[in-house]
Each structure stands twice: as structure tokens, then as C-alpha cells.
Amino acid sequence: MPLDALGEASDEALLVAYGNGDRAAARALTVRLTPRILGYAARVLADRAEAEDVVQEAMLRLWRIAPEWRQGEAKVTTWLYRVTVNLCTDRLRKYGRAVDLDAVPEPEDGQAAAIEGLIEQDRAAALDAALGLLPERQRQAVILRHLEGLSNPDIAQVMDIGVEAVESLTARGKRALSRHLAGRRAELGYGDD
């Protein structure tokens, strides 16, 4: 595949090209997809090394399926997220939840919190901690919907459930997150809006 066509090619076209031996297509897919699934794995596992192992394994499975990929049957990203979600679930069940709630930093005091970047980090850490308190399926659905930006039908395929079940999981997950974070909104720089 010509180099200038790689950026515009669909994930599926790149995967098929790689399956036919095109190494440049593999490079384009790596750049495009690795950050996406690393974001999910790192958030769920809360362990960088574990997350990287999961990503490498998920991408390896993608390389292996490439020659047999059936065009038009599934989105490459949906397939890859599904593999990643399952690998993360396996790791969590094997090794236990990696999220160490005690390790999540408390909000900085008023002076330090004036630095916007630190506030952002604190907010992100607070959200991660609250996500860690959710039941597994609610956490998966909320992350896929609100942090990874997948549509509900895509999440339904990733999690192998119906769209209505996705909506229910995300709604319940968000209610629980709101409860967990309610006491920290003022600390994290949010007013009573």
C-alpha cells in the first residue's frame, strides 16, 4: 500500500494489507491502535507493565487473525477492544484488582491546587479511584463509553451484551461515580454548580 494512502486507509484495509504481507500497513495499525487499547488497559489494570503486556498480547492476536480476517463482519477496533477487555478481565481475576486506592493521592492543599495541571491530575486520579470501586461490568461500560468514546452498539459487541444492558450499566455506573465523587468536588476545584 502506498505510504500516502496509509493515513486514509480504514483499519480493515490496513489489516487485510498486512495479512497479504504489507509491513507498512502493520506500522500504521500499530501507531493507530496501540494508544487506544493501552489507554483502556492502563486505566483498568492500574499497572503500566501489566497493561503493556496485555496490549502486546492483544496486538499479537490481531496480527495472527489478519490473514483470516473476514471483511465486513466486524470493526477492527471493536474486535481489538473485545480482546483487550477479556485479557484485562483474565488478569484481574488471576491477580486481583491492581487498583490500590490508598496509593491515590489526596487532593493537594489550596496553594498547590492553584496549578491547573495538578488539579487535572488529581481529578483524573479521583475518577480512577472511584472507577475502582465500581462493579467490574459497570466499570468496563463507563470507561468504554466516556473515556474511550465508543458508541453503545460497539460497546454491546465488545461486552457481548445488548445495547439496553450497556445503557443500564453506564447509567448505574455514573450514579455510583457521582456518589463516590460527591464529597470531593469542592476539594478538586469545583463549586456547587
Binding site: P35, M59, A124, L127, A130, L147, S178
Partner: peptide
């Protein structure tokens, strides 16, 4: 009210380092 937390989490997303990209490409 959760959206600012989601915004912050998206901004603090883990980014792959060169070593991971190299491992993935080596597998390919």
C-alpha cells in the same frame, strides 16, 4: 457533573512509549 472528571481522565491518558511500539512491531 462527571464530565470534568472524564475530561481530566482523557487528558491524563497513558501514552505508549517507544519500547512498547517496537515490541508490537517486532511481533508483526
Amino acid at each position: 457533573p462527571l464530565e470534568p472528571f472524564f475530561d481530566a481522565a482523557r487528558a491524563n491518558r497513558a501514552a505508549p512509549e517507544a519500547d512498547l511500539m517496537a515490541r508490537v512491531l517486532a511481533d508483526a
